[in-house]
Design a protein around this nucleic acid. Structure first.
Lengths: 123, 123
DNA sequence: GCACCGCCTTCACAGGTCTTTCACCAGAGC
DNA sequence: GCTCTGGTGAAAGACCTGTGAAGGCGGTGC
């Protein structure tokens, strides 16, 4: 039953994550990510299109309860965003839902300012 | 018994609210709403097609009794209406019943002024 | 041992978002 | 006309998130 997950491949648009060997493919090309970045990305990919709270993310990736004032998640979301944007500039993957958490969904970068998921970093 | 609510999904026309993770979908697209906006929307969705008094809404969303002169509900109803109208212009969701409260029902925007539920905002 | 290097955490500042409150206005009912 | 109720825009402060940088730590190669 471990075998099931060992071959787990997560997909989101042009983004592909192979959990068994820590490989991230963006548009077919391998992306260089650290262990933490990889686990954070996995945690978000496994809950694609849903909002994952910071508490959940911290428990999943770091283990243990999120302490007040801990900014690790923000920093790593930022690092992931940078790398993903560099690799796939036309897509936006990690969306912020203020007060709720983060959501991973591949969405085309519009440029317009709809009231949809308009994170701070849109402009 | 918590499991029942944990997957609670509220539907009203093209509007979908996933209570467990704070996600609002309008026509399939994620809508960006704040915590208060979300809770107010949930409170209305859970009593779909029924009139909810301001006192009830305040108790449910803000907690505690509604003080005279408190306009928070009006402001947040307005914010929700703006976002819903931008996302789904052809539908009207939140209807005012002066002196009674608010009612959430998906109704097509007619343009005509039937004597049905003619809320203040029909203009 | 020692310099180098990448990774992780923490800090500090900046900027954006959320909530509440206020002010003014319009419409309904008396 | 007057009062009550609700619509709407703006403003202030609290709160949350983005972001660059510094420091510690462990691994690697010399």
């Amino acid at each position: 039953m471990e075998a099931a997950r060992s071959n787990e491949v997560l997909l989101a648009g042009e983004l592909e994550v192979r959990c068994e060997d820590g490989l991230v493919l963006a548009g077919g090309r391998a992306l260089n990510v650290s262990v933490r970045e990889f686990e954070l990305l996995c945690a978000l990919m496994r809950r694609r299109d849903r909002i994952v709270s910071r508490e959940d993310l911290y428990r999943t990736v770091w283990g243990g309860a999120l302490r007040g004032g801990d900014r690790s998640i923000d920093v790593y979301v930022h690092k992931l965003r940078s790398k993903l944007e560099t690799a796939l500039p036309s897509m936006q993957f990690i969306h912020t839902h203020v007060g709720f958490g983060y959501r991973l969904s591949p969405e085309a970068v519009t440029g317009a300012s709809h009231p949809f998921h308009t994170p701070t970093t849109d402009r």
